[in-house]
Nucleic acid binder design. Structure first.
Lengths: 236, 236, 236, 236
DNA sequence: CATGAATGAGCTTTCATTCAT
DNA sequence: CATGAATGAAAGCTCATTCAT
């Protein structure tokens, strides 16, 4: 018997989430065995994140992952049921991490212009610092979001940034700075688009533009342009 | 001798492009066998485009392609050398097709505002109608642009749209409509970002936003917003 | 120390039988833990019987058995040493059950014809009601009786039916009803053959005969024919 | 592309039978390549028959088969699609062989008693000389006839023996030797039961009876008893 | 020009079993 | 007494590719 629900079952009806499994047995003090077990699981998850990000789902072989985790293939199945279950855990973990990072954003919504600048800087920088986020999402979209829908509480991973932007826009309108007819979701998508695409397509763009779009000044230039554009589109 | 050079070298330094090979023996009148051979080659290329777009490079097996083309594995090697050569041919063909489509864009640069609207509409619609373009580019970027650099005249596939936008902006500035300090490349990237991301990430976005972003009115709303944003950012 | 001897030797020369182990510590009153332990063991044995009967020895995986028993793999090794030890216990249990059933047969050997009818009915019905008996025996014969010879007192499981038939035939001869030159063992094999084969090969027979041999009237017809045949062969 | 229809397709809709594939391209003279290919296929089929008969379907691994055939795993899939397809081909071949053997039976139906003796001798001897037939059928019945129903023309493999027996009984009735109310199918099942069971269960029977049932005189004794029994049950 | 046959390495997954507390 | 963690080997199968005519 394994921590992962039986593989067939795990695909159809997942009773325990990867997250809940990781948490352990509540308040009870964990023994050394459980701690090392947790380390094993975490190591596989971390290795899988890197391997899937680098090679995609199909290209990221189980062997690549287990050896990167300094473990063996068998343990992957012990903890995650199968390759797909591992990928789902990776996606879930990826969203959790980004949500945590967003939660740490300390914004002063009373200063809507500056707050918007901060949000843009955060999003663009997050993608730059987390290229694996971009490739994992591309992989998931290649598979038509097949794994995301299996997340237990998919909705909980919906970006809170959109709510933040909504509040910023609201304050800006009240202060007479912003137009009242701008939808927060559009602004969110605009910001995310520019940050995501710039990172996602950096290789093909570089090949055709003959510039290094990842050079610090190029990145700064792009961020300035995006900030300017966003502010123009929300301002009166 | 086969159409595809057989040496190992053919994989690293490709002397003849897939395109040039496809053209055949110049002015000589082709016989019926060559015509059917051309049809076989085209069928494989078309099938490969669909299969690679749907499954990525690793997920798109040779067998999937040859059976989709109603051909056999062996023919793929006969015409394209190996799987990578076929993928390169697909990428090349994909760029060629988009360039052809762009070339058909009939713009009146004397009307810069309308011309810009037309460019935006073209780009957004092109991605919507060619989802395979998006997934193939994502796949190529996952592989860090490894195949694109093997295209013989990569630069020739650089989007002409950027030049078009440059002319539009220039005219707009002369007419006193646009700001003089906007870089065409930034505007191009802005437009492409919004069109590409919206299509590329449609599955994960839908999962978390609970909306159908591909519904006609949603698409129109997005296009309006993007158009508005672009015009605001270039206008005085 | 575990109930199943842990040494490697336990697999080759088994000193204690599964049955003796199950009995426990003789007359001592068992505690609640031992009762539940007994329940666990019985549950595994029952599950194993079903799984081995359905999938054979090789097809019946440890995991299938433990999950069918709502237990875990480890318990199987705890109580039965290994998979082979469990299979041996299943075979032993199967024979014990059939012997118990035979023992309940209440025959009037003074009425040899009727007694023979009863024996035939019993055998044919037993196989019909215990298809697992048939598939387990087939599995054991596939393995060339490898496990049966490890039963401690294999001979004790020899069918008592053959002795019963011997007595019936003897009485019948004395009453002038039966031929004196019929061997009980032959009659026994004849009855068993017809009952066993009809059940064992029901799937392939049905596929080729286009009849449902398991329909009640078909079963009755077969029993009548067998009874008639046996009586004709033993009668003067 | 392979001779075996694509594996998925082969399981659902089998267009070409294993037999038809083996026949080759009709009247055209086969080249040396095709001859050796046929040899490869036949070798695998023969090895598979032995391995499946000895170890069952689950116990008969692909590696055991390919090495017994002095081939490699891959060729098994090339010719038979998958393990199940190979097993089906084995079953089909097994039936074909038995039907061929039955066809060679030269009976004089004008001598119904002797003809019946000959049929019994044939059936009992066939099982004795072909123990693989017995274990393969047991394996197929363990799997509930799952493979047999996939045979293209399953009905064609229905034993012709039953028709032979029908004719014999008919002649016997006309000659006033046999009872008119005996069903050929019952006689067929009776004969087959006794031959099959005696072979199939030889290991468990020997273990409990303490006799060698496979000794020549034991076999002859059994054949005599069966013959006597059958004749008694059909005679007036 | 075209194609059936063949191949070795790799894939994901499951196997029965033991370790360590 | 009981169990979660771990494991090496082997399973069935698919991979991209080359051979040989």
């Amino acid at each position: 018997m394994t921590p992962a629900a039986k593989s067939t079952a795990s695909r159809t009806q997942r009773k325990t989430t990867a997250a809940s499994r990781a948490v352990g047995a509540g308040t009870r003090k964990p023994g050394v065995r459980e701690l090392s077990a947790q380390a094993t699981r975490d190591g596989i998850l971390k290795a899988a994140t890197q391997v899937f990000a680098k090679y995609g789902f199909d290209g990221g072989s189980v062997e690549k992952i287990s050896s990167a985790a300094k473990s063996v293939d068998r343990m992957l199945y012990y903890y995650f049921g199968n390759k797909e279950g591992l990928f789902i855990a990776v996606i879930e973990d990826m969203y959790r991490q980004m949500n945590e990072a967003e939660a740490e954003l300390d914004l002063d919504t009373e200063q809507p212009v500056q707050a918007l600048r901060d949000v843009i800087a955060f999003v663009l920088n997050y993608y730059q610092r987390h290229p694996e986020f971009v490739t994992l999402l591309n992989t998931e979209n290649l598979h038509q979001g097949r794994h995301i829908v299996k997340l237990d509480q998919a909705a909980q991973y919906s970006s809170p940034a959109i709510d933040v932007i909504r509040r910023i826009l609201h304050t800006g309108v009240q202060q007479g700075l912003f137009r009242p007819d701008v939808v927060a979701r559009d602004v969110y998508l605009l910001i995310v688009s520019t940050g995501y695409f710039y990172m996602s397509n950096r290789f093909t763009l570089s090949a055709f533009m003959g510039e290094d779009l990842q050079a610090p000044q190029a990145l700064q230039h792009w961020q300035n342009f995006v900030t300017d554009t966003v502010l123009r589109t929300v301002s009166r």
